[in-house]
Structure formats: C-alpha cells, structure tokens
C-alpha cells in the first residue's frame, strides 16, 4: 500500500545542489545535482573519501543533507520525519561490502527479515524467499549459516535480502570490494537483472575493471563534487 508514496515521475532519484558537511568547513559532498531514471543502472565511482558512501547514506536517509534537496521516490529526504524513514527504506534495498548478515541465523532467516518487518505471513514469506534464493542460485543453501558460505555466496544472500521485498531502488556500496573478479561479475549480473525488471540500481565502486566491462552510466565524484556524469551505451560485454 503505497498511496501518497507513489512516485509518478520517471526519476525516482533526484538531487538538487546537495551538500553535506560533517564538520564545519569540511564538505563531504558539494553542490551535487543529478537525476536517475527508473530502471537505470548507474555506477558511482571515485577514490576513497570522494563522497560515494556519503551520497548513498543521503539517498538512504541515514544522513540528512546540509544543503539542497533530495527527492527519493517523490519524498524530500531533507524534510522527512524520522517516523517516515522506515516506510521509505522498505522501498529501497541496500547492499554493503561487508554483507551485514546475521551469523546466528540461517540464510533463509536472513533473507526473510525483510518480509518480517512488513508482516508477510510465514508461508508466503518462505515461498518468496525460496524463489529469491533460486534467482541468486542459493536455494540449496537456505538452511545453512552464512558463516559456512563463501564471500560471493554471502553477498548473493545480501542481494537476495535487498531484493526480496521488490524495492524500487537498490543501493550497493562497494558490493564487490571483498570479492575476486569472477565473483564480482556474478554479483553485478544479479543487479543488472534487477535493473532489467525495473529496479533503479546505484552501485558505488572503485573497481575500474567493472566500469570497463559494463558500459553503464557512471557518476564520478572527486573531493565531494560530481566531476563527471558519463552516460555510456549499454552494450555490456
């Protein structure tokens, strides 16, 4: 039930002259403006400290902008009440470099947590989790603990958890940072699949090999400023 939340425009992510300072006089992001279309797959790149994580934190409402406006799915993050943040997050999936999985729970339980918070009945939740795990190729590992999985498998579980709620936006912060090249490709492919189904995907990475391999729109940050917004042909290799 989205009601007033329904974003009717084609750009679920809009930033207008956004700046973010954690310490006075030192901006983590400066005057960033951008729009991302529905179903678009975008790389966010730049060196460490360039502002990639800050930008994702703002989109995820983990932080508020110091200046400027951010419209996520039609809602202004700068003015969003704290009590409205959970409802926004249910429409945004997030994936991190360190997976953030609960080690004491099974793979199935880790993925189901997304459905639990919205009160999905147990039987329906199990069915949806099974289908999601099948999409990421881990249905046979659903009763295993994440500790028993490889890094690539753990990241696939994290992606399954982010996507099982059918989010409109998927944010990934260095999702391949701990993985070898073959596994990195596997993970990016999963996210590309999500984009083809209409999910807007933003992937922060400083892995040039991925940028070269996938010719997708790339936003490059330098010292908190948007230095380049390169729209590329999507003829993936």
């Amino acid at each position: 039930m989205r009601g007033a939340w329904e974003s009717r425009d084609d750009c679920p992510v809009r930033m207008y002259r956004v700046s973010k300072s954690y310490i006075a006089g030192s901006a983590a992001l400066r005057d960033v403006s951008l729009e991302i279309r529905k179903g678009e797959f975008v790389f966010l790149t730049g060196q460490s400290g360039a502002g990639k994580t800050t930008l994702l934190d703002l989109l995820f409402a983990a932080e508020r902008p110091s200046e400027g406006q951010i419209l996520m799915l039609g809602r202004n993050i700068a003015r969003l009440r704290g009590s409205a943040i959970p409802a926004l997050r249910r429409r945004v999936g997030v994936v991190f470099q360190d997976f953030k999985l609960l080690q004491g729970r099974s793979v199935e339980e880790n993925v189901r947590i997304t459905l639990d918070v919205v009160g999905t009945p147990r039987r329906e939740a199990r069915s949806r989790v099974f289908n999601m795990l099948r999409q990421v190729g881990l249905q046979h590992r659903r009763y295993h603990s994440p500790e028993s999985l490889s890094g690539g498998e753990q990241q696939r579980v994290a992606i399954a958890r982010a996507l099982v709620g059918e989010p409109e936006i998927l944010l990934a912060d260095e999702p391949t940072g701990n993985l070898d090249p073959d596994l990195s490709i596997e993970i990016i492919e999963l996210m590309l699949n999500a984009a083809t189904r209409g999910t807007t995907v933003i992937v922060a990475t400083h892995d040039h090999a991925l940028l070269e391999r996938y010719h997708r729109r790339t936003l490059r940050l330098e010292a908190g400023q948007l230095a380049e917004d390169e729209a590329r042909a999507s003829a993936d290799l």
Binding site: S83, P86, R89, R90, K100, L102, V117, R161, G165
Partner: peptide, 16 residues
C-alpha cells in the same frame, strides 16, 4: 545491535 542495525536497514519501524 547488529540485528537491530539490519532491521533498521530493511525498514523496521521503531515499534517493531
């Protein structure tokens, strides 16, 4: 706290 952080990530309300 790890579990609570993840709950917050997936949109759990304060009451939940």
């Amino acid at each position: 706290k790890d579990e609570l952080g993840i709950l917050a990530l997936v949109g759990a309300s304060r009451t939940f």
